[in-house]
């Protein structure tokens, strides 16, 4: 796991890392899932996401917001993602299953993703980001 939760009084703050930008996006999505659902194992249902944006940061925020939207409107629990980034566009597949109240509840609903302060940095050859999920 290449994401860790840091102290934040009101919301969820994570530091996520990846060797590539693709991996960074995947890890950040996993961090988000860890807040939302318990027992994330299902991967039979797939959803594809295609997005373009004006910066890598906005691409990440749009990607996460899109996952939140799909999860809520289709009642799906996601466990992992595969992301392929090309410049400021991405193609991703997200894997999950139908939400089951007895199995998956206990997480916290994410109301939004803090937009500002989000900056993809590079340390020791790894991409890194700090991100706040507003709950």
């Amino acid at each position: 796991m290449s994401f860790e939760e840091l102290e934040h009084t009101a919301d969820f703050l994570f530091r996520c890392r990846g060797s590539t930008k693709d991996e960074l996006f995947e890890e950040t999505a996993s961090a988000m899932f860890s807040v939302m659902f318990e027992n994330r194992k299902e991967n039979k249902i797939q959803r594809k996401i295609k997005l373009s944006s004006d910066s890598p940061e906005n691409l990440l925020l749009d990607f996460l917001s899109e996952i939140l939207f799909i999860s809520e409107t289709e009642n799906l629990v996601f466990s992992e993602t595969r992301v392929k980034i090309n410049n400021n566009s991405l193609e991703a597949v997200i894997y999950g299953g139908k939400f089951n109240i007895n199995l998956h509840s206990g997480g916290t609903e994410i109301k939004g993703i803090s937009r500002s302060g989000v900056e993809i940095k590079k340390y020791d050859g790894k991409y890194e980001i700090s991100i706040i999920f507003d709950v």
Binding site: N58, S65, K111, G112, I113, S114, R115, S116, G117
Partner: peptide, 25 residues
């Protein structure tokens, strides 16, 4: 909130409003 934050962020720049923190868009 998510939808409009994006537009308001651009508006902050468009109208030349100086903010000390991006979250105050």
């Amino acid at each position: 909130c998510t939808d409009h934050l994006k537009d308001i962020e651009s508006a902050t720049k468009k109208y030349g409003i100086n903010i000390p923190d991006g979250q105050l868009a």
